[in-house]
Each structure stands twice: as structure tokens, then as C-alpha cells.
Computed example of a mutant assay.
Amino acid sequence: MIRFENVTVIRNGKTILKEIDWNVNKNEHWAILGLNGSGKTSLLNVICGYLYPTSGKVQVLGQEFGKTNIPELRKDIGFISSSLKGQLKNFDTVLSIVLSGKFASIGLYEAVEKKDVQEARRLMEQLGIEHLEDSAYGVLSEGEKQRVLIARALMAHPKILILDEPCNGLDVIAREEFLEFIEKLAQQEFCPTLIYVTHHVEEVLPCFSHTLLLKDGEVYAQGFSRELLKENTLSEFFGREVTVQEQQNRTWIAIK
């Protein structure tokens, strides 16, 4: 699904990513964990072809960068970030926003067919927002907006779905409801490969079988989540001694 081989990105004389080796295989869901400034967003921009590596090789969905049509490739990648929420129009209905995902447009300007509406309604039902079909986007809760964005992304039937710190701005209740939803989404047959980016360890859900620890633009460690999210590893990773507790199949940390 994704292959990085010795990928380095240098911009304005600054090394943003350094010698990244990383493979994401089919049927794997990954969490990318790192503090602010660790290079998480840059890594996502490389995956989507918005940031081109200075050296190294990138393959996404079997397509090697430099030998493929990047805009066409992006159609198979769903990208959900907090910045997208601010671009959508508050007066647009949920149904129209979900339908716009087919065309990757901000707003619905293309004619839609009956099958498109049926598909949008099917996705909204699966994501538990079918009752919001005629609601204006601006009146939704933050958690509901996130579900709308996911339904919108899934309209294009992406093979990879990237969630870039999706819990930013959510209160604790909305966050836990959203994370419960992500766990259920990962169990659905239609779910694409998930790449979930965060700087909160407790958001690494059981469905994320693998974790990439990113620090100062470099891969600190990667592998099975259950093996990486341990006290010694996380203490060294964060540069502070932390305690680790396992609750509800999730890892929670506190500074000693």
C-alpha cells in the first residue's frame, strides 16, 4: 500500500524527513505517533504527493513517484484534516457535502445520479449520520462533522484513508465517541487502509495493529503496536520518564 525507501526531504537547507524506511501492507492499519514538529504532516504530504522527496523512493498503491500521475493517484487517497473542516460551507447540507466527495470539490457543482445519492445515503447510514441528511453543516457538533468528512472521503472509494489528528477540537466525550466509531469502522469490509496520525498515545486504538514512532523527522521505531507502546520505549521516545497503564485495550501514559 505504501513503501518508503530511504526517503529524505530537505527544504531551505533544513532536513524535514531523514532516511525514512517504512512499509504499509494490505490489511494493516497504522498509527503515526509523534510530538509537534516531529515531521508527521510532512510524511503525509509525501504520501499524497504534495511534498516530493529530495532523495529516496516512494511507492503508493504500487505506483512509483516520478513514474505515475500524482493527481490521478490522489483519487485513491482520502485525506481528512482539521483544515478541511474550515473550508466547507456552513449552510451546505450534510447530503450535499457527502456527495461532493465523489468529485473532490468544496461544494457540489456537478450533476449527481440517483445511484450517487443512494451511495451517499448508504454511507451515512453505516456511519450513523443518516438522520442528519438535511441538516446544515454549520449546526453539527464537532464529532458529527468528523463523521461527515469520513463519509465524504469514502464516496470516492479510496484505498487509503488518512486521518490527520482528527480529535483536535473535540471534548473528551466527543473524542471517545469518535474513537469508538473509528474502531467500528476498521471492522467493516468496506474500510480502506487507515493511517491515523496523533500525538496522544491513548488514541492508538486496538484496530491499529502497527505504530510508527516519528521523532525529529526520523523513524524512532516501528512495528506491532503492542510491542512498541511500552514504558521503556515511550520514556526514551519522549525523553521523559513515563508510566504506562493498559485500560480497555488502550495505552495511557503519565509523566513520572
Score class of each variant (00 low, 15 high):
Ile2Gly: 03
Arg3Leu: 11
Glu5Arg: 11
Ile10Gln: 12
Asn12Phe: 07
Gly13Cys: 10
Lys18Asn: 04
Ile20Asp: 10
Asp21Met: 14
Asn23His: 06
Val24Arg: 06
Val24Glu: 06
Asn25Ala: 02
Asn27Asp: 08
Asn27Thr: 08
Glu28Leu: 12
Ile32Asn: 13
Leu33Ile: 10
Leu35Cys: 12
Asn36Arg: 12
Gly37Glu: 14
Gly39Thr: 12
Lys40His: 08
Thr41Asn: 07
Thr41His: 03
Ser42Gly: 11
Leu43Gln: 15
Leu44Trp: 13
Cys48Pro: 04
Tyr52Gly: 02
Thr54His: 14
Thr54Phe: 11
Thr54Tyr: 15
Gly62Gln: 12
Glu64Arg: 13
Glu64Asp: 06
Phe65Ile: 02
Thr68His: 14
Asn69Asp: 07
Ile70Gly: 05
Ile70Asp: 00
Glu72Thr: 14
Leu73Gln: 12
Asp76Glu: 10
Ile77Gly: 00
Ile77Glu: 00
Leu84Asp: 13
Gly86Asp: 13
Gln87Arg: 15
Gln87Met: 06
Gln87Ala: 05
Asp92Ser: 09
Asp92Ala: 00
Thr93Asn: 03
Val94Ala: 07
Val94Glu: 02
Ile97Phe: 02
Leu99Trp: 00
Ser105Gly: 01
Ser105Pro: 00
Ser105Phe: 01
Leu108Phe: 00
Tyr109Thr: 12
Glu113His: 02
Glu119Lys: 14
Glu119His: 13
Ala120Glu: 05
Arg121Gly: 01
Glu125Leu: 05
Gln126Pro: 03
Gly128Ser: 07
Ile129Asn: 00
Ile129Thr: 12
Glu130Gln: 06
Ala136Lys: 06
Glu142Thr: 14
Gly143Thr: 12
Glu144Gln: 15
Lys145Ala: 10
Gln146Ile: 10
Val148Lys: 15
Val148Asp: 09
Ile150Gly: 03
Ala156Thr: 11
His157Val: 00
Ile162Pro: 04
Glu165Asn: 11
Asn168Lys: 03
Asn168Cys: 02
Asp171Cys: 11
Ile173Val: 15
Glu177Gln: 10
Glu177Ala: 03
Leu179Glu: 03
Ala186Leu: 04
Gln187Thr: 13
Gln187Phe: 09
Gln188Tyr: 05
Glu189Trp: 02
Phe190Lys: 01
Cys191Thr: 11
Cys191Arg: 09
Tyr196Leu: 07
Val197Glu: 14
Glu203Thr: 06
Leu205Cys: 05
Pro206Phe: 06
Ser209Pro: 04
Leu213Met: 05
Asp216His: 07
Asp216Thr: 14
Gly217Trp: 02
Glu218Thr: 15
Gly223Ala: 11
Ser225Met: 12
Arg226Gln: 09
Arg226Trp: 11
Glu227Cys: 15
Leu228Lys: 00
Leu228Gly: 10
Lys230Asn: 13
Glu231Gln: 13
Ser235Lys: 15
Phe237Thr: 03
Phe238Asn: 15
Phe238Arg: 08
Gly239Pro: 14
Arg240Ser: 06
Val242Arg: 10
Thr243Ala: 08
Thr243Ser: 13
Glu246Trp: 04
Trp252Met: 07
Ile253Asp: 08
Ala254Met: 04
Ala254Glu: 09
Ala254Asp: 11
Ile255Asn: 08
